[in-house]
Every structure is written in C-alpha cells, then in structure tokens.
Design a binder for these strands. Sequence first.
RNA 1: GGACCCGUAGCUCAACUGGAUAGAGCACUUGACUACGGAUCAAGAGGUUACAGGUUCGACUCCUGUCGGGUUCACCA
Length: 593
Amino acid sequence: MPTLFEALQEKTREAVQHLYQHEVAAASIQVQLTRKEFEGELTVVVFPFVKIARNKPEAVGEAIGQYLVAHFEPVDRFNVIKGFLNLSFKDAYWARLLHHIAGDADFTVAPSTGQTIVLEYCGPNTNKPLHLGHIRNMVIGFSMAEILAAAGHDVHKVNIYNDRGIAICKSMLAWQLYGEGETPESSGIKGDHLIGKYYVRFAQEHARQVEELVAKGMDKEKAKLEAPLQQQAQEMLRQWEQGEPAVMELWRTMNGWVYAGFEETYAKLGVDFEKAYYESETYTDGRDMVYEGLEKGVFQKRDDGSVWVDLTDNDMDEKILLRSDGTSVYLTQDLGTAQARYNDYQMDRSIYVVANEQEYHFKALQATLEKLGKPFADGIYHLSYGMVDLPTGKMKSREGTTVDADDLYEEMVETAAATTQELGKTAELDADAAHALYRMIGMGALKYFLLRVNPKKRILFDPQESIDFQGDTGPFIQYTHARIRSVHRKWKAAGQPTGDFSGPLTAMERQLILHLYRYPQVVQEAAADYDPSHVANYTFALAKLYNRFYADHPILQGDNEGQQYFRVRLSALTADIISKSMKLLGIAVPEQM
RNA sequence: GGACCCGUAGCUCAACUGGAUAGAGCACUUGACUACGGAUCAAGAGGUUACAGGUUCGACUCCUGUCGGGUUCACCA
C-alpha cells in the first residue's frame, strides 16, 4: 500500500500529465511538511513544473490544487503561496490514518529485505577498562543494529576482542613483577580495572627507566626501546607467539578477568552480542590469506621477506601485510576476521562501528579484500564516528585522563536518583523498582546525549557540566511517556469510556497524527544514512509536539465522550511510538517517574 | 605536504538531501490552569550559516578557492 506521500506524488504526476501533457517521475515530486505559519499539512513544491507549464508559479499551483481536490479524495482544500501548494486534508482522512497507525500490526515493522548484516561494535583491547569512547561506540552500535532490524534486515551483532599484542604483555609483565598475586577476588577490584591498573603501572615504571637512561646520556627514543621493561615485554610477546605454556596460562587468566569485567559493563549499558571474535584466533587465518594472495600474484614479497600490498591504484600507499620475521600486523588479522565472519554468516553487508581515526585502515582492508577477490569486500562499510574529547583534549588511558565507563554509569544513576527523589513523584515504589527506574533514567540521559548528535561529529564532553535532564534530553522524552501513561491509567480507572467522533480536529491534532505517521519513513532514513540521530530528533520532536498538544487540549475533560476517546487513543498511540523509537535508541521508557 | 571529516544564535545541536521569513534545547528575561503529572507549556531576545567567488527561478546544502579545527598517511593495534 502506497504511503500518503507516495499517493500524493502519484496524483500530482497525474495532474501534471493531464494539465500539461508532460511526463514527470512521481518520485521526483517534492512533498514536504507545511510550515507552521501556513494553513495546511502537506505542501507540494510546484517550481519544477513552471517551465513545463509556461505559466506563473501561482497559476500552476492553483491548477494542480484544483485537480487534486477533484481527483484525490483525502484532499479537502488548498492554498497557494508563491510556488508552494499547501494542502489540507479531511478530518475523516486523519481519523482513518490514526486507525491505520494503531491497527496495522506491520506499521512499525518493515517487511523483510532478506538481507543479512553483520554489525561489529565495541571492539575493545583487553589491557584496559572501557571508557566514554567505548560507550559512544556501543550506544551507536546497539542502536544501529535495532534500526537496521526495524528496517527489515537480518542483523547479527558481534564483538571483536583485540586480545593479543604488546599492550597486553605490558599489563601481564607489570602484574608479574609488582602484582604480588593480586586477583579481582583478593582485591575487590573489577577485572578490567585491575588489568588497567597494571597497564598504567607499566607505563610509570617504564618512564622511570627511560629517565635513568636519558640521565646517562642516551637518546630518548632509543631509551624507550632499550629500557629493560620494554625488552622484557617484547620477550614475553615472543614467548606468547611461540605458545610458551606459562605465558599462555597467565594470558588466559588475566584476559578472563577482563572479560568478566566487560560483561558487567555490557549488562549495565544493556548491550549484547551474538558472537565474539578474538584476534588471537583469527590472525593466523589472515596470514594464510596473505600466502594465498602471494600465490595469486596480487601481493609482493620483498627481499627481506616482508609481504606488501600495493594500493597506490586506490589512492593509498603500499601497506605491509607480514613483517620480515613472518608475523602478522593489524591489517592481516582483520583479513582473517572478515573471512571468519563470512564463513559464519555469508552476510550481504558487514558494518564496522569504529572511530574515525581508523578510516584509512578500513579503506585499506576493503581494497585488499577486493584484490583477493573476496565476495564480501563490496559489502564492507565502516560506520565511522567522531571521537569524544574532553575540555583538556583527547582521552588517554596511559595518562589516566579517561572518563571511565563504570564511573560515568554510577554518576548518571546517582544524578537520576537525586533528581527523581527531589521531585518526589515515585515515593511508593519499592527499593528495587526505584533503583531500576534510576538506571532507566540515567541511561536514558546518557544514551540520548550521545545519540542525538550525528555520529560523524566529534563530541566534547565536559565532566564538570553534568548531562541535562531537561529540554532536548532522554528524560524529557521518558517523562512525556510517563505522563501519557498516567492519563491512560485514569481513563481505565474511569471505566474506559468510548464514543464516536467526527471532528473537527485541531491543527495540532492533525500535526501529531502526521508526525506519528512518519515513523517508518524516519526508520528507513536512519538505516540508509547509518545515523541514529534521525530517530533521536524525530522522537524529541514527537514528545515536544505532544506536550504542546497536552497543554491546551483537555483529554479526559473533552467536549464529549467521542472526543475524549479520540484523544485518549491519540495519546496512547503517541506513547507507543515514543516507546518504539526509544527502543531503537536502546532506551527504555517508564510508566511513571 | 596528500587524503578524509567538521565549521550554523553565547553554548550544544537541527534543517525532510536544492525550496517559503534558517529551526530546537541550554543559559538569560517575563508569564501559565484550585482540569488529565510544572522533568511541562507560552512569550521575548539572540544569525552576514567561517570567508570570497560560481551554478540555479531558488544555496546552510552543489562546484572552485581561502582561512580555522580534527583525524590519518608505522615492520603499533
């Protein structure tokens, strides 16, 4: 069934053909929402037909308007201002739309596209805890998965653990040297934070050694490499790659602590994964793919034994794939991971939610897979998002200038609790329900804060200024939902009175219905643009519109039972769409707050 | 230096993908029902859309150049 917009485009096409004997593509006809200072709900832009018609814009608008009134049943009347044809629709038509939105189970669920998408997000290193940057990643990734699923795709969320390499060895080494057997259990420190503690410790001790060497006259860059700790870490990495049992054992133990810590954080944020990939398991596959490329002649081996791919045709440089000692680099293991993923899912699209500092890497990855002739190379998409900066600059784990994910979570929940208690509207909730509510509101504020902005843009986060709970925020939208549910409970308590209603509708009621009606379109746009902020902005606009409606439209005290029932339904539907939209953002909405 | 991204109200962001007088929130000023929840609503003030050209009936949007900010161009990941 065509949407209202499509039907209007088609009828306008018909009008142009009938009036001017000229074919235009229906899809090219511009339909927009009427600006609020003019009468009407939808506007057709007639400028493009002016040349065809060889007439003034006003005359063309007039002619098409008359045609539509005569031939497009929903249209009630129209007015023309310059090249804009503003259309008003019949009250009965709005009632029909409302019925469609409420009654059609498929309204909020797009038909299946049959397309399989694998969406990778989070992708942490296992040598330090998660911070605000990871939160932005997870919130975008989770939301994008929800949106793509709502757009009809078959979405699989996966995680990738960068669980090997020199950084992990640094944490391991520092723990070995200074840890005195400390464990998460013995210290009461969450596993990922414990590893982070030793990562920082390594950096401190290493810096001290470097200073000593520099004091003895060594060049600083050289000292960084020559420092005993650095040497020991590299030796440990070599042992790891050789599968030295003691090192492997330590590695498995410490990574185990980290994963347990991460799981806790995922649960708090309400994100999940269908499957996890580990670079320690895929990097050898990547190496095999490089050999395969050598055989095919698409990669080149140099005299020193290193292997390269020439990407100069793709406006990039030559990239190394295997070091002269035969070991893998970052790009190599991502080749292996991509292949493993394809073996598991045979996906049509593979989306990587990764910060924009890795744009070059993903271009190189895609180009390299193309050279290998991999069928999944085309479907790779890097959902690149801007970094979260602090007023002091970039977050750096080694320097302890990060905003820790768990800390931020606690702060958000505490603020939500304080605000809620101050307003005192939920005093009757028991402790568990109250705490669940604070979490819901705190996470709503945080997630909305991160999702309302286009992912591409970098975000400046000022820890001094706490995230707002008023205005364009998650709690504002949650509040709107709670408010509607409250009215609904009152209506139910009054015995759920119903009645027929034939209008007239107010301008705001029409606007509200039209806005609700646009929901599927917004979902499609967000999916096509890989941009959850479309959904966030839509939801805020809906809540705002409803609050305005609420302020001067009596619902349970309407003129008659018909009008009351109509407004109850309109309200309930608004709550429903708010709830669904927020779900796409990974945010829950409360019955009261 | 090359490539990519960003620049809109004091601050944080929009602008239906080229359409009307560029809209919201925060902050500031003023106001609101003994009606359904004041985490709300209404009103005021706030703009040379970084700058200069160009294309177009029409440009925040497209093209060219300039300036400013960010990222990247590792035998790190």
